[in-house]
Design a binder for these strands. Structure first.
Lengths: 337, 337
DNA sequence: ACTATATTTGCAAACGATTGCAAACCGACA
DNA sequence: TGTCGGTTTGCAATCGTTTGCAAATATAGT
């Protein structure tokens, strides 16, 4: 065991040439005689040579691996994004180092610092909810390591990003509720990640405004998009006896929990209150009733992010991409037949 | 931009000592005077020094990254396993390179070969369904790169593994069906990955035998565990009018699809036929009726795999771990109140 | 004070590749 | 035969560390 792999100088010895020649031959430099090139390439194949990526990385300062940081690994949205990234970079010959921040700033900082030591040529990241200080990313950029953000943006320039069009998504969902006859539509807004929730709230408000309905005080509720908070929200509405005829949730977990509370308490969905969520979790379609939601195509987001990364690695200018979302209409919001 | 990081020799220059001394001081060798060590460490911190992992890897031949190969990235089981692995190795200072084989042998081979170039110190893998030739893994072992298998095993020794106890899982599930009063219990067996399905089938047969029931010809059906095949299976049973009073599926996707067909055709679950699946997909609990299934704790499997890997990296002997599963009983199999 | 021993230090090679520069080689032409 | 231009080649440095070994310095014992 622990058999050594063949190196460039093994080949050189066998052929009685210098390592320089072998290196050049293998890299297709025109500084080697055609005849020699052939022999080197052939011998290399025979000996099962493969360049040592570590050595190459040390010499050239560039690895063939890309880093990806997500808040959570086991969230469908991120999983799909990872799959998307992987599918693209694999074909380009890159590896993917994955790390999760757990949404903690401190951990994210450590990860970024670790990646900054030259392990990766670029970083694709969705920043942690907790993060408000971006200097660790700033350092990366200063070191010449390109960054592509997705999902959540950072107020930093000099980097690419790809996000879904939250405004449009919320706008369309709200329109849909209006079309179903809803007038008193509430919005459950998320906490943290200001820009994202802002965009969604704006979309909601715009749609309401366009329909000539004024959003009254108390119609927008801000909380974490967890099941617990969703449940609490529903109970609060029930307690106040203030049930709207439609609700746009900024997350499916909260929506689902709220739906359960409503159903248990005799509030019918969608007849009494129509519900639309955000993110389109894989289990939405199995809920009773199936939950309408906004699909964000995280797999495609991942692919785009990866493409931007490859561009950036080759020195391309940063770009910002916004992808359309799609409203998936299911039972939970269909008042009309 | 592209600012260089401080190196060991930057520190050496500043302190008028040799790089050797700095290196030793930083690595806690006892070959440096205590006083010097202090100064070096302090200066290193001041200059924001962090060792270049690439250089270290080249010199020592050992990286601080572990490779992980899964058939599919976006399958709950694997996602959880990844999360488990990550949680353990992160604390040990390792990075995780992730690659998916798509269940294709050829792609798996390329991944393994790429990782074998010294990029990783160890590989945690669930082999592709298609794979029957294991020489690429053999090569890894021969190179001294430890391997930890999970989920699906390989007929190779010299490596660690961690799997769930499929036999016990199937046995318990079958017992449960028997306890609910089922006598004519069918088993939907998977295709490919022989060892896994074998274990499950054996568990099923053993439980039946222990209950004094002979499994008749035709009671075990072999097919892919996809929704499509599950649907086809249910239709076949309906067509033959041969509905058992219980079915143990080797996968939840097939079970779910079959349940839908049954329900559509007036076959009641669990009254007419009780159903238990395998894997406990996250949406099982939202189906109507909620699907009983066997939880395999992939997160824990990932953690164990990671621990075995760390052991192996430190030269520990290979070990094989088998984890218990847990039967999650839901509506779909509860005939008794 | 002087040697023997223990403690610290630095030189230089090595890991496996890449690359600027100088040297060797080639045929051709005068 | 000598020189020139072009093509091929190899030397040696380099990337940032680690580490065996020899050299330098400090400590101790007599």
């Amino acid at each position: 065991m622990a058999s050594k792999s063949t190196t460039i100088s093994d080949i050189a010895k066998r052929l009685n040439v210098s390592t320089s020649t072998v290196s050049r031959a293998l890299n297709g430099s025109k500084l080697v005689a055609e005849e020699v090139r052939k022999r080197v390439v052939q011998e290399a194949k025979k000996m099962g040579y493969a360049p040592n990526p570590i050595a190459v990385a040390l010499k050239t300062g560039k690895t063939k691996t890309i880093g990806m940081i997500v808040p959570l690994i086991n969230r469908n949205y991120f999983v799909e994004a990872i799959a998307g990234v992987e599918s693209v970079i694999y074909d380009a010959g890159y590896d993917l180092i994955i790390a999760s921040s757990g949404n903690f700033y401190e951990r994210e900082r450590k990860i970024v610092e670790s990646l900054a030591q030259g392990k990766v040529v670029g970083v694709i990241a969705a920043v942690a909810a907790e993060t408000t200080d971006y200097s660790h990313y700033r350092n990366l950029i200063d070191k010449g390591v390109p960054i592509v953000m997705f999902d959540r943006l950072m107020p930093l320039d000099g980097m690419s990003s790809v996000v879904q069009d939250d405004f449009q998504g919320a706008y369309n969902a709200t329109r849909h509720l209006l079309e179903q006859g809803c007038r008193k539509i509430f919005h459950y807004r998320g906490l943290q990640n200001v820009s994202m929730w802002n965009a969604r709230e704006k979309g909601y408000r715009q749609a309401m405004a366009d329909a000539g309905i004024t959003v009254q005080k108390g119609w927008v509720h801000t909380a974490l998009t967890t099941p617990e908070e969703g449940e609490r929200y529903a109970r609060k509405l029930l307690a106040k006896g203030d049930i709207p005829d439609g609700i746009l949730f900024s997350g499916d977990f909260a929506a689902k929990a709220a739906m359960e509370v409503f159903t248990e308490n005799g509030v019918r969905i969608p007849e009494d209150v129509a519900i639309v969520g955000f993110v389109n979790e894989p289990w939405d379609k199995y809920l009773t009733p199936p939950l309408s939601s906004i699909e964000q195509f995280p797999y495609d987001i991942g692919k785009e992010a990866a493409r931007l990364m490859l561009r950036a690695i080759e020195g391309g200018k940063p770009r910002k991409i916004v992808l359309d979302t799609e409203l998936i209409i299911r039972q939970s919001s269909k008042k009309l037949k």
